[in-house]
Design a protein around this nucleic acid. Structure first.
Lengths: 108, 108
DNA sequence: CGATAGTATAAGTCAGCACTTATATTAGAA
DNA sequence: TTCTAATATAAGTGCTGACTTATACTATCG
């Protein structure tokens, strides 16, 4: 699933926002999303699966709980795609300065 | 239509890439897209309509031709949304430096 | 004017996705 | 071991959106 397919869904974007604040258990995410979007735990679990399988999130077990954390790699890909459009709103920077400002680096 | 809904479609992303290189007539876009994706002129026209109506592109008439140009405003919104994730891959900058580097400014 | 080129719209079809309810799985408590 | 809490998966459904073909619109040329 392409990064933009993943990001298209507002629930998934909200989940990523939550994870950007720090790790959260599946149930914690589910309760926030349930309150804000009125969807079930099953739906949230399915979204978390999409985020996992597309590389946007990682999980670890903590007893019966599943702790999710954001993995920013695919978001960095999106950021890279936007690069070609930045000249439309950013002031000019020389190449090195831009390089430093963006913190670009090779991906493994 | 939300920016991410627009960007979800690979044809629309490709059209934006083409427009990022400079203005193009509808037919020029259509012929490239037709070659690369194998879809009809009608389909491309519909995509251009989506891009227009969602603010990603502007049109002007040139005789019977319609010249499209990219409008980066919605892309800048996407860029802004990504902001909260940049700390996961960017080196630390102080606030002012980041401000300058990003060329952030108020939108009208 | 009529013909043609360039482009947009209309109408219909089909696949995929986000959701639901129901159930399975697993961990820890009693 | 049985019960409960936490989470994931299965199966089914409806809606949205990207596509097609066919047609309408508009400008220019002869």
């Amino acid at each position: 699933m392409h990064a933009f397919d993943v990001l298209r869904d507002p629930v998934r974007r909200r989940i990523l926002e939550l994870l950007a604040e720090g790790e959260h258990a599946s149930g914690e995410v589910a309760s926030v999303i349930r309150r804000e979007f009125g969807v079930t735990q099953a739906a949230v679990s399915q979204h978390l699966k999409v985020l996992r399988e597309s590389g946007f999130a990682t999980v670890r077990a903590d007893g019966a709980r599943r702790i999710y954390a954001v993995d920013a790699d695919p978001l960095q890909d999106v950021d890279a795609w936007l690069e070609r459009f930045r000249r439309f709103w950013e002031p000019k920077l020389d190449a090195l300065e831009t390089e430093i400002a963006r913190g670009r680096r090779k991906r493994p």
